[in-house]
Design a protein around this nucleic acid. Structure first.
Lengths: 223, 223
DNA sequence: GTTCATTCTTAACCTTCACTTAACCAACAA
DNA sequence: TTGTTGGTTAAGTGAAGGTTAAGAATGAAC
């Protein structure tokens, strides 16, 4: 299976060079010339790696990256930047960049980074399964024994975390971290969402339930 | 919680510089001067990131990396290399490197890469073991011969202390200190919790028991 | 812009559970 | 006997967790 990447870059000449070079290496490379177009392509397709210029018309790279992560898409992102300041790089990593490259870069350099990043998430699965419960990551939808399980963005993130840790207890702190990241709500939001998720599992009479580990957190287990 | 990294590097001057700089940033940095020593430290401790020189006495960086991955340890590894050839880098990524840096590098550069890699770190498991009893620290859960042992926050702390001291007697004072810290309860709480923990060990018919050292404290021992 | 639906946060209230406490036993030594 | 040390049990309390509903925020449809 060949690698599929997206390049978001407004310099048309540079873009053409990159696209051509990657094609030679049997890497398919789509191209978007601005941030907005980039985002819609990312929503539409499933890329292995996203190459993102920092300075973009319409929507800058950092914002694009932020929006991608907000939609709980964890495709590896390689930031391309003309600047070389520590501040920019740290800002990049804070919004969820995986790596960066300072322009002008050697095209071979780009190649190995793309190869490395595409491998990193190669263990990526688009569906998670536990008994009869199936979570489709791409479409944010879940089914139990072929009945739909209704998920909101937050309950979906929770369910994903639970299924990735399969039966293991997860601390409240971890759960809050995976749902909200840094900006955490002040109050008892988590327990409300856990409650919603439990309700949905009950509704389909799932043989799975979210058990409480008092004083620690929760675990999704077979009954 | 501060970051804990290991630097495997034979150039003592460089090593000292790196260690000092990282300490300033509140990152604890252990140092090994050759590959063999590096490997044993990796086995012994739980690092967030490993910084690995490519040219090392006794066992080169690539081999160290390979061995680490073979022992299914997925700590992020940052390769430090004097060479800049595409071949070396690809070789690095093939044996499981996560990133690399070409010498001479800016120390700030190293810092942001360490920060980025430490974030990426996947759920490392730290477990304590004694006979068939296994305590999973991250999930606050224990099993004996694969049966779950039910733990409350306090019995979990007690069990952790007992297993860390493996068979050694621990004074009441020590136990109370590890569970409650400064604000200690007035009464006989400790013996109640010890009792609960004993009950749980009995329930799974563990070949371990908490023995009383009269006038001193307790010890967890094989029967 | 307004309206509507959906989702998230917040807060109030209720329930459950772990922890503390204290009382009572058992073993043993003085 | 009595005092000391440790073990067992159970009740009460407070904190942690569960439930519900109202209102704020968001975003799509018009």
């Amino acid at each position: 299976m060949s690698i599929n990447v997206l390049l978001v870059e407004d310099d048309i000449d540079l873009a053409a060079t990159v696209v051509d070079y990657l094609e030679i290496e049997d890497i398919n490379c789509d191209h978007a010339a601005n941030g907005v177009q980039g985002l819609s392509l990312i929503e539409l397709n499933d890329y292995h790696v996203i190459l993102l210029d920092l300075n973009l018309p319409r929507l800058d790279g950092l914002s694009v990256c932020q929006k991608v992560r907000e939609s709980s898409n964890d495709t590896p992102i390689l930031m391309l930047t003309a600047r070389d300041s520590l501040k920019d790089k740290i800002a990049g990593f804070n919004v969820g960049t995986d790596d960066y490259l300072v322009k002008p870069f050697e095209i071979e350099e780009l190649l190995i980074r793309v190869l490395a990043l595409s491998k990193r998430r190669s263990g990526q699965v688009s569906t998670l399964q536990m008994g009869e419960l199936v979570l489709q990551l791409k479409t944010h939808s879940a089914t139990y024994a072929n009945q739909a399980v209704k998920l909101t963005p937050i309950t979906c993130k929770l369910l994903e975390k639970f299924m990735r840790e399969a039966s293991k207890p997860i601390s409240r702190k971890d759960l809050i971290q995976t749902v909200w990241g840094e900006e955490q709500p002040d109050s008892n939001s988590l327990k409300v969402h856990i409650h919603h998720l439990r309700k949905q599992l009950e509704k389909v009479e799932a043989k799975l339930s979210i058990e409480t580990e008092t004083g620690f957190g929760f675990a999704l287990r077979e009954k």
